Amino acid sequence: MVSVGDSAPDFTAPKTDIDGDIESFTLSENLDDAPVVLAFFPAAFTGVCTTEMCTFRDQMANFDDIGATVYGISIDTPFTLSEFAEKNDLNFDLISDTNRNLIDAYGIEMDFADLGVYDVAKRAVFVVDADGEVTYEWVSDDPGVEPDYAAVEAAASQTVEEASEAA
């Protein structure tokens, strides 16, 4: 699993923007928008996942104020994520990991074997700085647990402060 201090695994995947447009997204090409918050969630249109993404939506002003960019990531198709974003009025982009390359690279796959559902993302959040280094990681083995949003915001803010001091 990816940890603080590691280089964030680079990836290219389909991204659905807030207007519903789908385009290719490469992490390394978007590090100028750092800190980048990668918020993995198991599946769109499920209870806790919807609550989590809506909480990020409701707190976007805080992330915008510190210059952080938030991306939600799940194994859903870009088309499903587009509908999910529209139905929940999300104000940040969503990344589709239908091939499960990202959850594999970040080491956060899990199964709901009793339901016959395999290889979905654990609920996890990574903050990545402009150099591509992971400055914060939170991973839950319990899909019913949401991240500590204040801790994610504080980590992103700290990443900004450290970048300012280094400049």
Rank of each mutant, 00 (worst) to 15 (best):
S3D: 11
S3A: 15
V4F: 13
G5V: 09
T12M: 08
P14V: 10
P14D: 07
K15M: 15
T16Y: 07
D17H: 09
I18C: 14
I18Q: 14
D19C: 03
E23P: 05
T26Q: 13
L27E: 11
L31N: 15
D32L: 11
D32I: 04
V37D: 05
F41H: 12
F41Y: 15
F41R: 06
P42F: 11
A44T: 01
F45L: 08
T51A: 08
E52C: 00
E52K: 00
E52H: 03
E52V: 00
C54H: 00
R57F: 04
D58A: 04
A61F: 05
N62V: 00
D64V: 00
D65Y: 03
I66L: 04
I66P: 02
T69I: 05
T69E: 07
V70I: 11
G72M: 06
I73Y: 15
I73G: 09
I73M: 13
P78L: 15
F79L: 03
F79C: 01
T80L: 05
T80I: 09
S82M: 14
A85G: 13
N88S: 11
N88A: 07
D89G: 13
D89L: 12
D89N: 15
F92P: 02
D93G: 14
I95W: 09
D97M: 13
R100H: 09
L102V: 03
L102Q: 12
A105S: 13
Y106T: 09
G107R: 10
M110H: 11
F112P: 03
D114L: 03
G116N: 04
Y118T: 03
D119T: 12
V120T: 09
A121S: 14
A121W: 12
A124K: 08
V125S: 07
F126S: 10
D131N: 15
V134S: 09
T135E: 06
Y136R: 01
W138F: 10
D141E: 15
G144L: 09
V145N: 05
E146F: 01
P147K: 02
D148W: 07
Y149D: 06
A151C: 09
V152L: 05
V152P: 04
A154N: 02
A156N: 01
Q158Y: 04
T159S: 06
T159F: 08
E165D: 14
A166E: 06
A167Y: 13
